[in-house]
């Protein structure tokens, strides 16, 4: 059984249909990369999965349990909050909390959720995650004291701290200087090797091909092509996919 089943997801903004029926599966331990030009609906798809946007139609099923059904969307804030915990999201702009140190950024939400539970354990876990991100000497730094690549790695640790079923990345290196993208891609690569279930929206084609098991090419709100990441990026079947990939190569 796939960990995530998305069926016929549709989303309109005003009069434009941004998602025109998206369906795909994701197996536990797999990474899937989503590629496509800007405006193709990639980011909207991620935002619908994290319930930052409410899809108009379609279903989202996690571990066999129907989490979302466009026919009867959840409006209860508490339920919405619980639904979001199945997914983690790493933003393009990091969105770290500026008034908290790297470690506090990672432990804030788990500590609030635990309500005085195993405080020491949460902090230990936060330190371990930052260590895993190669930031053991940066735990007490505030975001403005960190480089973009370091900030993004803190953001990844922050998302992992809540142990989401599926971790989503929204163009995680697009806001970074080219020389800083490597360190972020490396930690995502490590996560893939540890069989973290991930959905990665990215413009880094070589990365999308090498790290992900599967790839999805989106265009104009539909999935035009999906399959093994290597196949799709090395030998695209659709003309439009070829166009997109060769346009990038130029």
């Amino acid at each position: 059984m796939p960990i995530l089943e998305v069926r016929d997801l549709k989303k309109n903004f005003e009069n434009t249909q941004v998602l025109k029926g998206i369906s795909f599966d994701l197996e536990e331990g797999e990474a899937i990369s989503i590629i496509g030009s800007s405006g193709s609906g990639k980011t909207t798809l991620l935002r619908c999965l994290n319930f930052l946007e409410t899809a108009d139609e379609g279903t989202i099923t996690v571990r066999g349990k129907k989490l979302f059904d466009g026919a009867k969307p959840v409006t209860n804030q508490d339920e919405l909050r619980k639904m979001r915990l199945h997914f983690g999201l790493v933003f393009q702009q990091f969105n770290l909390f500026p008034q908290y140190t790297a470690l506090e950024n990672v432990t804030l939400a788990p500590l609030l959720a635990a309500e005085g539970g195993d405080k020491a354990g949460i902090i230990e876990n936060g330190k371990r995650l930052l260590d895993q991100m190669g930031l053991s000497d940066r735990m007490d730094n505030y975001p403005h004291q960190l480089s973009g690549g370091q900030q993004q790695r803190v953001a990844i640790a922050r998302a992992l701290a809540l142990k989401p079923d599926i971790l989503c990345f929204d163009e995680p290196t697009s806001a970074l200087d080219p020389e800083l993208t490597g360190e972020v891609l490396k930690v995502i690569r490590n996560l893939a090797e540890k069989k973290t279930t991930m959905i990665i929206v990215t413009h880094e084609m070589a990365f999308a091909r090498d790290v992900a098991d599967k790839a999805i090419f989106m265009d104009g709100g539909v999935i035009l092509e999906q399959g093994s990441a290597k196949e799709l990026i090395n030998n695209p079947k659709e003309e439009r996919t070829r166009q997109f990939l060769s346009g990038l190569a130029k």
Binding site: R81, L85, F87, F91, Q93, N95, L96, F97, A109, A159
Partner: peptide, 12 residues
């Protein structure tokens, strides 16, 4: 983005 970061972390 500050609100959204809090939301995806399951905060009220």
């Amino acid at each position: 983005g500050q609100y959204e970061a809090g939301q995806v972390l399951g905060m009220t």
